[in-house]
Every structure is written in C-alpha cells, then in structure tokens.
Design a protein around this nucleic acid. Structure first.
Lengths: 211, 211
DNA sequence: CGACTAACGGCACCATGGTCCCGTTAGTCA
DNA sequence: TGACTAACGGGACCATGGTGCCGTTAGTCG
C-alpha cells in the first residue's frame, strides 16, 4: 500500500486544517462538515449517523469525510474542538449565589433546548464510547470552567468563601446534578437549576471545596 | 405478511419472559443473552456491538436475539431491568457522613472497576441515545436510591439534618459529581469519593435539600 | 404420557455503510 | 501568472450486519 500524504488522517484525534495548506477550501470543507455533523446528530442521533449523509448535507464528497476524519467519534471530537473555541461570556451579578445561579440557568437552558440538548446527548454518548472524544469533551469543559471560575475568586475576595476554595470544583458542582438528570432523560427545569446553584453555594460556604 | 405470536417483540421495551410460557428454556435463553450482552459490552464496547456475536457467546440462535429484542438498545434496557432486580445492601455506620462516604466509595469502586466501569459507560451511552433505555436506567437508579435513602431519614431523626430534607436528592448528590467525571474519562479515585460525600453532607446540613 | 404449539435455530438472502481507485480542483509559491 | 501538488469528488466494489423462511425443540396441559 502506497501511503500518500492524502491518507494520514488516522493518527489519533482529528487534525486541524493541515499545516502545509491551511487556506480557503480546506477550512470551508471542515466548517461545512462540522455544521452538517451538528445537524445530523440533532436530527437522526448518534446511533443512526451516516457519514455519507453528512457529506450530502455538507455538499462535499463522501470520500473526503472518510479520508479526513475516518470515524464518527473523530468527527465529533473535532466538532468539540471547534465548540471549545467559541466562548460564551459569564455573568457577574455581584454575589456568588447570583453568579452560580446564572451559570446553572445557562446550563439548564442549553440542556433543555431542543437542538442543543439533542446535540449534547449525542456528544456525551460519543465521549462515553471513545477516549479521544472524551478527551475533546474534557478540553471543552476546561474552556467553559475557565470562563466561570473568576466568580469564585471574586467571592473569596469579598469574604463570601474561605480562602483556598477550589474554584473549578465549585463550577463543576453546579452542572453535575443537571447532567446527571440528562443521563436518565428526566426533565430539567429552572427549579432544578436553582437547587443546583443553591446547593453548590451552601457547600462552598461550608468550606467543602478546600483540598 | 402473516404475523404469528412469534413476531410480536417490537412493542416498545423488551418484554420479560412471555406470559403464556414463562418456563425453563425461555428464561435460560434470556439469562444467557443478558450475560453475553454484558460481556460483549465490556469487551468490544457499545459502538462495535454485534447481535450475532452476542448470540454466539450465549450459545443461542442469532434469529432468537433479533426476534426477542429487535435492537441493541432494547437488549440493554432489558439488561438494566435485570440489574435493577439485584439489590446491593446499604451501609449503616451511625452517622450521615459515614453512610454517604460508604455510598460514595461504592459508586467510586463500581465506576473504576475495569468490567463494571466499562459496562456502565456503555449503558449510559445507550441511555443517551434511546429513550427506552433511559427509562430503564431511571428505574435502575430508583431502586438503588430507595435502598440508600433510609440513611437520610435516620440522620433527620438523629437531628443531624433539618426535617423535610429530600432524601433522594441527597443520595443523588453524592454520585452526580462522580458520574460527571466518568463522562469526561477523568480518573475517579477515593479522594473524589470523599469530596463528593463531604460536599453532599455539608449541603444537606446547611438545609440545601429542602424543597 | 401424548398432542399441541410457543419459542428456538440454521441458513440463504439482501441492504447499506465503508473502502479503493483514479481523475479533478484550487491554494501556494517562485 | 503558470507550474506544482495537497486535497477534493465520483462511482464501482466489497464486507458485514440484519431479515425471512422453514424445520426442530421442548414447555404445557388435558
């Protein structure tokens, strides 16, 4: 088998636009493929996903999809890398309880939204069956958590929380119970968001997030 | 198409041993299929699962598997129903913190164990892509939570917690952060279990689980 | 204990997702 | 602005998972 540069996509995670030729078309193809993947995941779900269908939606060749990403998880991992780059701004309400509530509501709305919710379910399912996707998901959350952790630093400075509080753990604690409900397909309403935020706030105040 | 009684498995969730003939062989076949499903999920994972392979492992006919369960998610949902029936006893250490810690360690060990962890990852992935499986998963957790909620009632009676504390929410709060780590493929060690238990305890004491 | 039939099993068949080959398009760089 | 080649696209081909048919096995019940 003669391996051209053409055939090298199989090295672990999906690669970003190739180093040697990052220009227009490659980037356009990637963007179209990722949007199509998003749509397909939302409409038909992970289980019935078909790379040929994605190619059709994206208006690109089926061969291209197989060559560049090779597998469904690799494609999703690349989608996650793309999502991690788009940042959503945090709130700053002036109190820890308010900030965490805003965060909880954001997560709640995302997971409840018809499109976003379906997308996240599919992505989480993919992450559970593929380590590269899991790694990409971790990076995605790293980015989101980094966005929100200043809330906790501010609360420590205001004297709301004990010094040494693990900011990232506090942020994670807000969304964990909401994701747990997502797993079992239970509904997630604003009440649950409020509970999640209140619980994390109480635990943080009690000093439960110091190592 | 002549529909015999033979062909009626497609009504939603997988059925339990048929009402009219619950006896020996049917039950044996089901048990063998569920054990084989467990093994296959652990060894090859959800993505590469093959019903013919499961039939081979179970020593039963491929046709039988397709006829009785129809799809992979239906088979997994039936596996979950089976798992829900096997109860694991709770601990009683005499204090809420101790009981929740015991629960957290149990969850931590389960998710960390090579076989059980892989099995849970596959099951959660299936639940995220199929509502019947999600429903079965919900029932499974209902059973587990019911087993442990007396810890909380006891703590209320001892005066450790305020009256009106939502027992089920407290139990869920212990495992939620551990499952959240599972999603992203992060390691889960006893330290994380201790944090999860301590956090839930602190939040419960602070009255965060009253509606 | 023998007839009845639900449920199982083997096998051939078929649909469809994934691979391969090779010609085409379009960034890149002198 | 033209040669070079990375990357794309079409379509034939192939492997494999899922279905249908029909004979066989073994609980059930009189």
């Amino acid at each position: 088998m003669v391996v051209g540069v053409d055939d090298m996509a199989a090295d672990g995670a999906a690669r970003l636009p190739a180093a040697s030729r990052p220009g227009g078309r490659t980037a356009r193809v990637r963007a179209a493929a990722l949007r199509a993947t998003e749509d397909a995941l939302i409409e038909v779900g992970l289980a019935r996903l078909d790379l040929a269908d994605i190619a059709r939606r994206a208006g690109i060749g089926k061969t291209t999809v197989y060559r560049r990403w090779r597998t469904v998880p690799a494609l999703i991992a690349d989608l996650l890398a793309d999502m991690a780059e788009q940042s959503s701004p945090r709130s700053d309400t002036g109190s820890l309880a308010g900030d965490l509530l805003a965060n909880a509501h954001l997560v709640q709305r995302t997971l409840t939204d018809a499109r976003q919710g379906a997308l996240f379910r599919a992505i989480l399912a993919a992450a559970l069956t593929d380590t590269d996707t899991a790694e990409a998901l971790r990076r995605f959350y790293e980015a989101r958590i980094s966005e929100w952790e200043p809330c906790v630093y501010a609360a420590v400075e205001r004297g709301e929380l004990p010094a040494g509080t693990d900011a990232r753990e506090v942020i994670r604690a807000v969304s964990a119970p909401l994701y747990h409900r997502l797993l079992t397909g239970e509904d997630i309403d604003p009440t649950h968001a409020e509970h999640a935020a209140a619980t994390a706030t109480a635990a943080a105040r009690a000093g439960a997030y110091r190592p």
